[in-house]
């Protein structure tokens, strides 16, 4: 039975993290230093040491994840600990600051840490929410088979329009050619359908072909519906109706595909923030520790 990393070993690491955070809060509350709370009291040093050790250890998760031969705990256990202890860092590091912030590298390190944790929490939300949605959306299909299915529909449509002749023929072919999915970061993450097609328009007395948006194949479907309404020949009407069927099926498959790309992208995108910021944090943390003792 599949078990979420959040519930790993009866949420053992959640309990550890809560204990750690509670212990920090109690210590902060009970300890009343002669100077204002800051990173330089003995509690400040303690929380700082624990926090820095945690950050280094949390970073090592990236290594552990890749070393498939390691027997040092399961990756799922590591992930569970990574998530919970990472969140507990929010409290430990905040108490370490003594709520003293400024325009300096110390606060920069803190801000980077918050950003890393926030992106990590975002990642957790993605991992908890999306796999199920992805499965539901794909509906037993693979991405490749959705492509094949669309391809099959395109073949069918291109065979059907041959019987009709232009201009529907040409519009259909352009709608097939100008089909769009994915692309840049924004195109993938927004899941917007930027498919296009070409339609004939009158420019003066001349007919020219112009590219127009065909989001969700709606333009194509509208054109086909118009053709059906004007059609006098029942044979042609039947072909047009079949064509409409094919295009609307394709539209729903495209929707699935776009959603799939979008969710897949969202499940990965947070890592493009989480990992670079983690390294930025490591560099700043190093500077924070060295500078504090450089000017002791």
């Amino acid at each position: 039975m599949h078990q979420s990393f959040l519930r790993f070993a009866d949420a053992l690491y959640m309990k550890v993290a809560i204990l750690l955070a509670l212990a920090s809060i109690v210590a902060y509350w009970a300890y009343d230093p002669l100077e204002p709370h800051n990173g330089g009291t003995w509690l400040g040093y303690t929380l700082g040491t624990v926090g820095a050790a945690l950050i280094v250890w949390l970073t090592l998760y990236g290594l552990r994840k890749r070393s498939y031969r390691s027997r040092l705990g399961t990756v799922q256990g590591w992930l569970s600990a990574h998530v919970y202890l990472g969140v507990s860092l929010l409290i430990i590091a905040t108490l370490h600051t003594g709520f003293q912030f400024g325009f300096n590298i110390h606060t920069l390190a803190y801000a980077l840490m918050i950003a890393v944790i926030a992106s990590g929490v975002w990642g957790v939300v993605m991992y908890v929410k999306y796999p199920k949605m992805v499965t539901n959306n794909r509906d037993n299909l693979t991405r490749k088979s959705i492509f094949r299915e669309i391809s099959e529909l395109d073949r069918k449509a291109s065979l059907l329009v041959e019987a009709l002749g232009s201009p529907v023929d040409r519009m259909m072919i352009t709608s097939i050619q100008l089909f769009r999915v994915g692309g840049g970061v924004w195109a993938q993450l927004s899941g917007r359908d930027s498919s296009q097609m070409m339609v004939p328009v009158m420019s003066g007395k001349k007919q020219v072909w112009k590219k127009v948006s065909n989001t969700g194949q709606r333009r194509m479907l509208n054109i086909l519906a118009g053709q059906v309404a004007r059609s006098r020949d029942p044979r042609i009407t039947a072909v047009l109706q079949e064509l409409s069927d094919v295009v609307s099926t394709k539209a729903s498959l495209m929707q699935k595909l776009l959603k799939d790309v979008r969710m897949q992208g969202l499940m990965e995108f947070w890592l493009y923030i989480h990992i670079p910021l983690t390294f930025a944090l490591l560099a700043t943390l190093m500077a924070h520790i060295v500078s504090v003792f450089y000017y002791w």
């Binding site: 991405r143 099959e152 840049g184 993938q188 595909l257 992208g265 990965e268």
Partner: peptide, 11 residues
């Protein structure tokens, strides 16, 4: 028809 590899569908 469509070649899935010709579309960028992964970050």
């Amino acid at each position: 028809g469509l070649n899935p590899d010709s579309y960028v569908t992964s970050l």
